[in-house]
């Protein structure tokens, strides 16, 4: 195998991996505030892509405004989901809330299918589709967009969680809800905010990925699954770990397909994931949870 092919596998892996990483980031935000794994995260990504297509085609907007509008709509959807499905049962155990998010994901998927049908749709790439040559391999301009925007979101989140009072408040809620409440943090508002931010991140992901991956009512299922795996790989709750986990998973899959067998590429990536979890149960970048007695 020549070095150009190896480089191509790496580039392909990073592109696919960034799709997993972006989904994984959304998981992290809600988990950090509420301890809930939001299984509707993949649906946020799907809605971001589908609504962008919808606003562009039906409403006849240009691509940039369609995407801005789609992201705003999904952020609002995140708020509505929190307000109407999570808040009314907020005293339920975490596992119940997780199951509610599974229900929400099925509901959203069903609605999307009824509204837009089962077809696949494509969004035009942001800056053309002429490939850029790089040491014998090729990079698509859209891949660079995706990597750059992912990086931007990641650093934005990092700054938000460690630098702003809201971000710190959200982290405090995850640590101990009652204590956060006692020091004057509005837990309800923080949970609402976390659903909105993860809706926003998911929708941005969906919109910038749609030109590469195409989009349909059910893309959220597999993205949610891979994104969750990326979270676990990187260490649940760590935004940097989630993004890195996604990229690593993508690269593993790509090399698995290229060097071993494309028939077993998913299996290959997941075997590595399992092995890693046996050795480091808290993930690559996770911190071991201390049990208080």
């Amino acid at each position: 195998m020549d070095s150009a092919s190896l480089l191509q596998f790496l580039i392909s892996g990073l592109t696919v991996g960034s799709t997993y990483g972006l989904t994984a980031l959304g998981f992290t935000i809600i988990f950090n505030t509420t301890g809930i794994i939001n299984f509707a995260q993949g649906e946020f990504v799907m809605l971001g892509g589908m609504l962008s297509v919808f606003f562009m085609r039906i409403a006849g907007l240009d691509e940039a405004s369609a995407i801005v509008l789609a992201v705003a709509a999904v952020t609002l959807a995140g708020a509505l989901i929190e307000r109407f499905t999570i808040r009314p049962v907020k005293d339920a155990s975490i596992i119940n809330l997780i199951i509610i998010t599974i229900g929400v994901s099925i509901f959203i998927r069903g609605l999307a299918m009824l509204a837009w049908g089962k077809d696949t749709f494509a969004l035009p790439p942001f800056s053309g589709d002429a490939p850029i040559a790089l040491f014998g391999a090729v990079v698509m301009p859209q891949s660079i967009w995706v990597l750059a925007i992912s990086l931007l979101i990641l650093s934005g989140l990092k700054a938000f969680f460690s630098g702003t009072i809201y971000g710190k408040g959200m982290l405090a809620c995850a640590q101990d809800k009652k204590a956060a409440y006692l020091v004057g943090i509005s837990v309800e508002r923080m949970v609402l905010l976390s659903f909105m931010i993860s809706g926003l991140v998911g929708a941005v992901g969906g919109a910038i990925l749609a030109p590469i991956t195409l989009t349909s009512f059910d893309v959220g299922v597999i993205l949610g699954l891979k994104g969750f795996a990326a979270c676990i790989l990187g260490g649940l709750g760590n935004p940097f770990g989630a993004a890195a986990g996604g990229l690593i998973l993508g690269v593993l899959e790509s090399f698995g397909a290229g060097l071993l067998s494309s028939a077993y590429k998913d299996a290959f990536a997941f075997i590595i994931l399992l092995l890693l979890l046996f050795v480091r149960p808290s993930g690559l970048f996770g911190t071991r949870e201390a049990k208080r007695v």
């Binding site: 195998m1 191509q8 892996g13 592109t15 590469i212 397909a257 290229g258 494309s262």
Partner: peptide, 20 residues
């Protein structure tokens, strides 16, 4: 003789192999 998953979104790895 390459294979991809029904929901896969990138086949460049397989095509790079085919090219070679």
């Amino acid at each position: 003789d390459e294979v991809y998953g029904p929901k896969d979104t990138d086949m460049t790895a397989q095509l790079t192999k085919i090219k070679a």
